[in-house]
Structure formats: C-alpha cells, structure tokens
Amino acid sequence: MASSVDPCFGVALHEFRERRGLSLRSLGQLAHRSKSHLHELEAGLKAPTVDTARHLDRVLGAGGVLARLVEAPIDHAAEAGELRARVAASDVGGDVLDRIEQGVDDLASSYPTMAPADLLPLVRRHLAYVGRLLDGRVTLAQQRRLLVAGGWLAVLRATVHIDLRQRAAAAAHLRAARDLAEHAEHGEIQAWCLETRAWDVLTQGDYRTALDLSRQAQRIAPKGSSARIQATAQEARAWARIGDVGATRRVLDRVERLTANLPVPERAEHHYRYDPAKAAAYTATTLAWAGDPGAEQVARAVLADLDPSGDGGARPRRSASARLDLGLALVAAGQPDEAVALGAQAVASGRVVPSNWWRAAELLAKVEQSGTPEAATLREACIEYAPGRQPPADSTPS
C-alpha cells in the first residue's frame, strides 16, 4: 500500500533526476515507469510505494535517500500545526516561533550526521515556511525572530549546497542570509555568511580571498561568539594553505586562547556552536596542511577521541576528515603505508561529502608521489567511492 504523500520525496526525486541529466521520459525508460507516473511523484500528486522508491534509488544511484524518505514516518502533527499557523498568520504566537527556532537547532544539529541530499529538502521546507509567515501580518518582535530563523536556515542551506558542489545556489542563499541578518541586525549570522564564503573559496584554491573573508568575519562577529572562533580558525587554515607556518602557528595560538575556557555546549553537534572537540579537529587539519611536524600527534589524538572503536563514532563525518588529516601528516612523516590505509577507510565510509573530496584527492596525490606501491589501493578506493557513484549498501553517507 502506498504511503502518505511527503513533498520531500518529490523534491528529492527531481533533484536526483536533474543531477543525472535525465528527462522524465528518459528516466521512465530506464526505470520502466510511465512519464505521467513519474510526473505525479515529483509533483506530490501521488505517493510512492517503498518498492518504487527503492527501484528509483537503484536507477538514479541515490544511495537509499528516496527509500528513506518513504520509510520515515511523516510528522502529521507538525504539518497540521504548519497549516494552522498559515491560516492564522496574522497572529504568530510564541509557541509557533518556539517550534520554528527549535526546528532550526534540530536541522543545524543534524548537519554533521545527515547526508546533504537528505538534509536539503528539510531545510528548504522550513525556510519556505518562515517565508510564508513573514508575508503575513506580524509584530516587529515576531518579525525579528522570523528574520533570525530565516537567516540561520539560509546560511545552513547555502552550506549544504556547497557540500553538494552547487555553488550558484549556495551563493544565492548566502546573499539571502546576509540580507536577512542585516534586517535583523544579527552580527553573528553575518559573520557566518563571510566564514562560509571563506571556506568555499579556500576549497577552490583562492587562499588570499579566504584569508580576507575570514578577517572580515572576525571583525563583525560578536565577542566570544562561535562565529568569531570559527572565522579565526578559518584564517589559520588559509595561512596553512598559503604555506606560512609562522602565521599559521600564531593564529592557532589565538584560537587556543579563544577556546581555553570554552564549555561543551548543550548540543555539541550543532554546526553553529563551537566546542573544544571541534577546536582540536581544526588544529589537526591546519597543522597537517601546513606540513607542521606536530600534526601527527594532534591528528592521532583527535581520531582516537572521535572514533575510539573504529566504527565512525558519533560524528562520522568528522572521523572521516580526521583520517584524511592523519594520513596527510603521516605522508609528511615518511609513513605512507599507514596513510593509505587511513585514506581508504575514510573514502570507503561514504562520509566524505563532494565539497571535501579534494582532500581525499590531495592525500592520494601525496602518497603516489611517495612512491609507495600501496598507493594503488587508495586510488582504487577513490575511483570506487567518488562522488556521484552509489555508496555501498551498508553505508549512510553524511
């Protein structure tokens, strides 16, 4: 029996089809489904069965995303609450705003563990809801809370688009987040917009622009905020990529001072709340990029803390990045064999998102330059698990 219609399924199906460059007709030929049936699924006019979702997953190489959207229960209470709020948009009560803000925190906390393609439809839906409420009659106080929520959602959406290498969409939503933050006079969101741009251009090799954006973010971020710490850490990364070890160390010292008495936040997995574990992971990355001899020791400690059992731990995306960091440090230390093993584990986990794939490619290049024959193992893993290929059945990328 078909499940209830979840609009997220149609959005996800359309995005995976577009990503493959398929028309409805051509997808229908591949999946042995009629064009009209696929149109109804994308438009939300018909609910897919679990078997149909699984079949489309296989055809599109969606890694189980579509099936999970069908199998996951729909939050009917939340949808009913949204409908009531839309009808009474002229009186947005505090309970509605509280639920919106809670939803923002939930989505930001899902970012480290949820696959970008899974998270994006949820963020889009919440952002659209906030937009509809802003179109209604609200008080100034209510408007500001909605603007702040919309700002956080827009910068999170931009970050997810970056992870998926959809840079035009990311740029558009960063502009929207900046505008919302300016209207709300919210310096921290404005700083996160700059820091997010800094990370994006850094991954594209524009290190000087990354440096400038990181410094701009620090100037406008509120004192003691997570945005200021993150932007400072981003500056250190930019110096590391430029190759200035002295400047890298000096900025890392500033990060250490900023985080010296930092408590573990209530939701440490929240993407926009800095925590001590994140500080250690950033230090490991930065030292590895700078070629600093101290990178190996820090990277080993970070990996041991994140993944003590070797199963990915509670933050599998960070664990995968930690393996790449340690691998890079080991190559520099003349230990390419262990670096190959760590790199292969990272890419095979399915947790290296498309925007971070260059880090795996960089490690591969380093181990191949070392001349170790084991480099072929890492190359094979990179080919097998490269973005766009379907991940292994027991993997849930994030």
Rank of each mutant, 00 (worst) to 15 (best):
H186N: 13
V123K: 01
A171C: 00
Q190I: 06
L174F: 08
A170E: 11
A184M: 07
R167G: 09
R219C: 07
A172C: 07
A128T: 14
T196C: 07
L156S: 09
V148E: 04
L194C: 09
I162Q: 03
G151H: 02
I189R: 02
R132M: 11
V201W: 06
R132L: 13
R157T: 06
D200W: 01
A149W: 05
A141E: 15
E195Y: 09
T139Y: 02
A177T: 03
H186C: 05
L202Y: 01
D135Y: 01
H161L: 08
E195M: 09
L133H: 04
R215I: 10
L174W: 09
V155I: 14
P121S: 09
A168Y: 00
W199H: 06
I162H: 01
C193V: 14
E195F: 03
G136N: 09
D212Y: 06
Q166K: 08
Y207K: 12
Q216H: 09
A154Q: 10
A154T: 11
C193F: 04
H161Y: 11
E188C: 05
L180I: 07
P121T: 14
A181C: 12
D163K: 05
Q204C: 11
V138L: 05
H183P: 00
T159N: 13
R132A: 12
A210Y: 05
R145T: 12
A176M: 06
V155T: 15
L127P: 06
A198T: 11
Y207G: 07
E182V: 12
